[in-house]
Design a protein around this nucleic acid. Sequence first.
DNA 1: GTATGGCACTAACCATCGGTTAGTACTGCT
DNA 2: AGCAGTACTAACCGATGGTTAGTGCCATAC
Lengths: 129, 129
Amino acid sequence: MSEQTVEELVADVFSRACTSREALEHVTGKWSLLALSALAESPHRFGELRRRIEGVSEKMLAQGLQTLERDGWVHREVRSTIPPHVEYRLTEAGAELVPHLLGLIDFVEGRMPAVRAARAAADRARLPR
Amino acid sequence: MSEQTVEELVADVFSRACTSREALEHVTGKWSLLALSALAESPHRFGELRRRIEGVSEKMLAQGLQTLERDGWVHREVRSTIPPHVEYRLTEAGAELVPHLLGLIDFVEGRMPAVRAARAAADRARLPR
DNA sequence: GTATGGCACTAACCATCGGTTAGTACTGCT
DNA sequence: AGCAGTACTAACCGATGGTTAGTGCCATAC
């Protein structure tokens, strides 16, 4: 066994010990997913992202960006100015991740009529049971 | 304007009014994502899913399955037997959704070494700031 | 007889996290 | 003076995730 631990070798999402579970949760988080999508368009400053993503609070945005930065999907660049000037851009890894997310988003968006129909049918049948 | 409402026409994830946001949250939810992945392998009974996905509680599993069923991604089939016999399988929509999810999962799994390295570097640099 | 297991949930409860609101410090404008 | 811009964070409280117990029937074991 090399320097890798057992934990590092587990890459099975069904296993409780799978470390990619947490990483998946991060990138699919409600606000993170939207931040990544916005950054796919172009680098953004904090406030630009805030305005781009309707409904996100500064707190939730900051939190998500911090996580994305720590995991290596997003690069944060600080300029020592007043007022603060912080810019976020996708890392190389982030740029490779985003098409997967956008594919999913596009797919679900395209399926919304069916989702709505399914919900109406389910509610008509009075689910939950 | 036909019978569709403005809300139904909004399919922009950046908009607060976008109805696909909720649907996205559902399919990317921690346990739902895993349930969908397991059902991609084969239909499962409730207990089979529970055992397949380490770490999920019956409560969280039932909750996720209910949501997936209501949105139309999963079909739930009940047999009137004692003990209960409930089987879950992907709907046609679900079967089209799942490759997107699996692609994302595979990608993130493959990137875990880089994610771990990024975290180590970030923590060494003492993030959060 | 009792106890336990199987099945698929749900109720009750509590810990954790999401979201709201207020605050920070500097500059510039009204 | 107040307000706006900038990018966060602290304090607080409500919502949701997760734990534990419970349901009712049948079968098996002691």
